[in-house]
Design a binder for these strands. Structure first.
Lengths: 199, 199, 199, 199
DNA sequence: GATGAATGAGGATTCATTCAT
DNA sequence: CATGAATGAATCCTCATTCAT
């Protein structure tokens, strides 16, 4: 006879709160969301939530960290490369397969996408808790993409930016009107234009 | 000797407030910005600002309206077409010239871009004052673009979405790290891939 | 061809404002009503209203003054006595006729009644602008009634208070549920109990 | 050595706040009183007060509820009837004894009376939070009184209204000038006129 | 591990009023 | 005679946070 424990283990409770925080942060942003709304979504009290994270800022950072970890586990971990740098050894087809995976995965988790879009634009404000986080992340991403495309296209930097722009743009478009565009198909079409396969 | 009047006329003061509201709304979003911060930026008091708009929501809508009008005047008005529909009669080169103009203009006004990016994502939340505004605007834009590309590309709908995605994505990328990419050059490169000119 | 003047004469405009102020003050009280609501009811602006009275307090006092004058004109002026003191010479029947007139008149003007009820209770607060006004008015009324009943009943003071209480109470009752009681009939019934006619 | 706790229990604190709210609401009415003034009277901050009730409106309703409960406990509970309906079986003397008790009790608690008078008149405004509360309460009261006088007087409805009017009127009179009239004596005198005992 | 009490700061908005026009 | 601009004070309420329980 397993009793259902009212008090979850610390880690479990944290994860529950974080998962509830993702759509809330994605919808209202860091400035617009309130711990109260998060607490209600978790069936907890406000101090109950704060007990686990200490501050609103800490909740945000935990969410960002969780999101990063999840993305890594879902997309990158399943691939045969140890790290991004190693990718250089692989061909364009491999790169496109990886991107396709990412897009396909994203299309299943719009809330994660929305969180990223919201916090990316919100964190442009220097006072935002995720200011440096996103600034550095963007730079790193562009560098990584450039690296990955190195030797495979004429101007890797331009191509990398184009790829990233396509991804960001489709995300925004799809989030706004999901019924109007097919995220994955649109991606496949776009990437083929930007990085045409040799036939 | 003209005295500087402390009381500005309705229209002048409104415009001043709106222009001050653009960067503030772009940085913090509707939920995150405070009328106080806007009032300080205008050298007014909070009720002074509210005197002209009545509510925070009304300020936002006035900003959106102003932004729309300005964009029209700056980009579309100078072009030889009466309206979007007429564009169908023009060729791909004309379409690309129009887009280029828009991008070039946008690259001079990052604050306007930032406002758009912020409010687009923020307004996905159904309770947001600009919810319907942006939903309808997005739909209209995709329809217009599709219409403009009709007969010029294989699949106008897909192409239109790709063009919009490129624009949105480059905006987001450039806003995040303006020093890392050349907005206009990157656009010209991208559009040539998506809508290649016949040579 | 008489032109309708947009600008009313000062006195007329004042009266219009006062008449609009009666139901508003009666409904929300002095503390609860706003000059804005009054201005709207008069199709004027807030400073437009204040132009005529100078302050919220002055509006209230003007309303009270107007109400007093109107009551006098409507009820007392039509009667054959010069003033209240003279009443002593008349009999009980005359007194009851006067009261009946008052009640009949009141039943036609519930807004006036409501104003009186509201301000009477509100003005018990020492900081209220009509504090002394009503305190003195109540005392004067009780004294006058006592005087009027002098020599006609056993204990004029008690009877006077009973008469006043009946009036105040029926007013309150009728204002609350006008469809449930017949103000005038109820008065006639009550006064006959308190001050029975000799048969 | 019992330490005086800074944090009171929910129920205790609520009662303290409500009791402080009674005179404040009685003096200024719902529209005229401010949570700040109540907070000061309780040696709390404004959010401290709101913590317990959530809104100004909720404070009012709690006050009304408390007042009702207290009246019941003080007057009706001590009497030998189970409920109002049962009263029909008792005679006029019993009814008058009950009324007398009520008046005697009221005369000891003018603040409660004042609260009732203020809110009764204020709640005639349809937007008032206690609008339906008082409308229904008035109807119920008149029905109950009529019921209680059924079979004991010629016209129970008229008599009931007269009794209520006497009560309401004496309250208003006494609240305005407590030094001028003896509430209880005046009641006893009045009720004997309206409902004379058989001798 | 979690809750209720309490607070200081700040949120938007309303208000009465003054001033310039 | 009336209006629009502007303000300081006060409104209710929400916020993140701390403390005691």
């Amino acid at each position: 006879m397993a009793k259902e424990p009212k008090q979850l283990r610390l880690a479990d409770r944290r994860q529950l709160i974080i998962e509830a925080a993702i759509p809330i942060n994605g919808q209202r942003g860091y400035y617009g969301f309130s711990i109260k709304s998060l607490a209600v979504a978790c069936a907890l009290t406000v101090p109950g939530v704060l007990h686990h994270f200490g501050s609103k800022e800490a909740i945000l950072m935990a969410v960002l960290d969780y999101r990063e970890r999840r993305e890594f586990e879902a997309v990158w971990q399943g691939l045969p490369f140890r790290d991004a740098v190693e990718l250089e050894k692989y061909g364009l087809a491999e790169f496109k397969r990886l991107m396709h995976e990412t897009v396909a995965h994203s299309s299943q988790h719009p809330e994660i996408l929305r969180l990223g879009s919201m916090l990316r634009i919100e964190s442009l404000y220097p006072g935002h808790p995720a200011y440096t986080f996103f600034r550095d992340r963007n730079r790193r991403a562009l560098r990584t993409f450039t690296h990955m495309l190195n030797g495979k296209v004429e101007d890797p930097r331009i191509a990398a930016a184009a790829v990233m722009a396509l991804m960001l743009g489709l995300e925004a478009l799809w989030l706004g009107n999901p019924e109007m565009i097919d995220f994955v198909a649109q991606w496949d079409h776009g990437i083929e234009k930007i990085l045409p396969s040799i036939t």
